[in-house]
C-alpha cells in the first residue's frame, strides 16, 4: 500500500517535481504513469523508495512513513522495493549473476558480500529470478556481451532477486526497439500477475500504456491530471495530459490503436 498525501517535491532552484500529489496504490496493482518528460514521472517513482526526499506532505509505503525513516530503516524499505531503470544500470564489467546478486545486498551481511560468499538461500533466489526471465544460461556472461533486451531482463532479475513487494520501473523500454519493448512489458505484466507484486511503470509511449496498464495515472507539471483504468484513456484524455495534440512520436508503433 502506497499513499501520497499533499506530497510535493521542490528541487533546489525552485523547479517543482511534484505539486501537491494525492495518490493511493493498492497491493498488487499494475499502474502506468504517463506524462511528458519533465512532468514528474521519475520524481514520483523515486520518492517511493526515498531516492528523492519529499519537501512537504506525507508518503507512506507499507505503513512506513518514508520521510521519517532513518538511514537504516530506509535501507530496509528499499530492500523490499525493486527498481528497474531506463539505462539498465548494470555493472558492465561484472557477470550477469553478480549483477543479480546485487538485489540480495540488503539482506546479506556486508562481509559476506565482500568475500563473495553468499548463502545458499540467496544464490537460489538469484537463480530463480534469472530463470524467470529466461537468462539462467547466461549467468556467467559479462553484461557487456548482452543485447539491450537481455540486459533489461537482467535488470528485472536483479529487482526480482530482492523478493520485493513493489517494483518501480522508470522508463524501462525507452532504450529498446518495439518488439523487445513488448517482451519486457510482458515480463513485467506476468510478474505482476503471478507473484502479485505491486508494479509502477513510467512510460511515455501511450499505446504501450493502454495495452498493459490496469490503471493509468497522468502527470502534468507535477500534478495528477488523470487517474483511471486504461480503457477510459482515449486520445482526448492523453491530449489533456500532454497539453497538446498527439504525434507519431507518442506511440511505439506508427498506427497505434488508442481507444
Amino acid at each position: 500500500m502506497i499513499r501520497f498525501r499533499a506530497a510535493s517535491v521542490v528541487y533546489p532552484g525552485g523547479t517543482r517535481g511534484l505539486d501537491n500529489v494525492d495518490l493511493s496504490i493498492e497491493p498488487g496493482e499494475f499502474v502506468v504513469v504517463v506524462g511528458l518528460s519533465g512532468a514528474g514521472k521519475s520524481t514520483l517513482i523515486r520518492t517511493i523508495n526515498g531516492l528523492i526526499p519529499l519537501t512537504s506532505g506525507e508518503l507512506s509505503v507499507n505503513e512506513h512513513s518514508v520521510p521519517d525513516l532513518n538511514r537504516r530503516q530506509l535501507r530496509d524499505l528499499r530492500g523490499d522495493i525493486g527498481m528497474i531503470f531506463q539505462g539498465f544500470n548494470l555493472v558492465d564489467r561484472s557477470t550477469v549473476v553478480n549483477n543479480v546478486l546485487m538485489g540480495r545486498l540488503a539482506k546479506v551481511p556486508a562481509w559476506r558480500a565482500l568475500l563473495g560468499r553468499f548463502p545458499e538461500h540467496d544464490l537460489a533466489v538469484a537463480a530463480a529470478a534469472l530463470d524467470r526471465v529466461g537468462m539462467l544460461d547466461r549467468a556467467h556472461q559479462r553484461s557487456t556481451d548482452l543485447s539491450g533486451g537481455q540486459r533489461q531482463r537482467v535488470g528485472i532479475a536483479r529487482a526480482l532477486a530482492q523478493e520485493p513487494q513493489v517494483i518501480l520501473a522508470d522508463e524501462p523500454v525507452a532504450s529498446l526497439d518495439p518488439p523487445t519493448s513488448h517482451q519486457i512489458m510482458q515480463h513485467l505484466q506476468r510478474i505482476n500477475r503471478e507473484l502479485g507484486i505491486t508494479t509502477i511503470v513510467n512510460l511515455h509511449f501511450l499505446d504501450l500504456a493502454v495495452t498493459y496498464a490496469q490503471r493509468i495515472v497522468g502527470l502534468r507539471e507535477g500534478t495528477i491530471v488523470f487517474d483511471g483504468p486504461g480503457s477510459e484513456c482515449t486520445a482526448e484524455v492523453f491530449e489533456g495530459i500532454y497539453g497538446r495534440s498527439l504525434t507519431a512520436d507518442d506511440t511505439l508503433t506508427d498506427e497505434a490503436p488508442l481507444p
Partner: peptide, 27 residues
C-alpha cells in the same frame, strides 16, 4: 548508474562500493 541501482536495492555503503564501484576501477 550501478551505484543508484545498488542504493535503490537497499545495499549498505560497503556492499554497494564492493559490487557497483570496485569492478569498474579494478583494472
Amino acid at each position: 548508474q550501478p551505484i543508484e541501482a545498488a542504493l535503490a536495492a537497499g545495499a549498505p555503503t560497503i556492499s554497494m562500493v564492493h559490487t557497483a564501484v570496485v569492478p569498474q576501477i579494478l583494472p
